[in-house]
């Protein structure tokens, strides 16, 4: 996988390799999705919990990046923790995820994320993340 500087794609090599892509936004936060494929399959015909977690986490960072860009900030982001709640099995179809900034401080952001498939009102998994923001020297 080539790594180019100033890549307009905000996704990490891991996220792109897993097949995560952006499709529009919701309340200013990028809406991400991943197609069902062998790379995300756990139990036959179902999403692996780890793949669902990867989608949630990526959507959480994307939501925070979008908000920080709007505020003119570009800190380095470091994960503190993530708690994932698995609500129902992810079936063999496209999954979406979008993050929401619950609290944005100077050093810490608290982000909640929802993932769903057919029905936006029926999430398959949710996550809460704490993310440390380190402002670059300058």
């Amino acid at each position: 996988m080539s790594k180019t500087m100033n890549d307009p794609n905000p996704l990490t090599p891991y996220a792109r390799s897993l097949g995560i892509a952006v499709e529009g936004e919701e309340n200013g936060a990028p809406k991400l999705y991943v197609e069902f494929d062998t790379a995300v399959e756990g139990r036959p015909g179902h999403f692996h919990g780890g793949a669902t977690s990867g989608l949630l986490e990526t959507a959480g960072y994307a939501a925070l990046r979008a908000r920080l860009a709007k505020d003119g900030r570009n800190p380095q982001l470091k994960p503190i923790n993530i708690t994932v709640q698995f609500l129902s099995a992810g079936k063999s179809k496209r999954s979406y995820a979008v993050g929401h900034i619950t609290r944005l401080g100077r050093r810490n952001a608290n982000v909640t994320v929802e993932a769903w498939q057919d029905d936006r009102e029926r999430p398959i998994a949710t996550a809460v993340m704490n993310i440390l923001m380190v402002e670059k020297e300058g």
Binding site: Y14, A51, G54
Partner: peptide, 24 residues
């Protein structure tokens, strides 16, 4: 693996694959 690194630079494994590792 190169295509499993995260966005912080430094050729470090992303946190997503680590969640998958711990889940399995």
């Amino acid at each position: 693996r190169e295509d499993l690194v995260g966005g912080t630079g430094g050729e470090v494994l992303a946190s997503g694959p680590i969640i998958s590792l711990m889940d399995m």
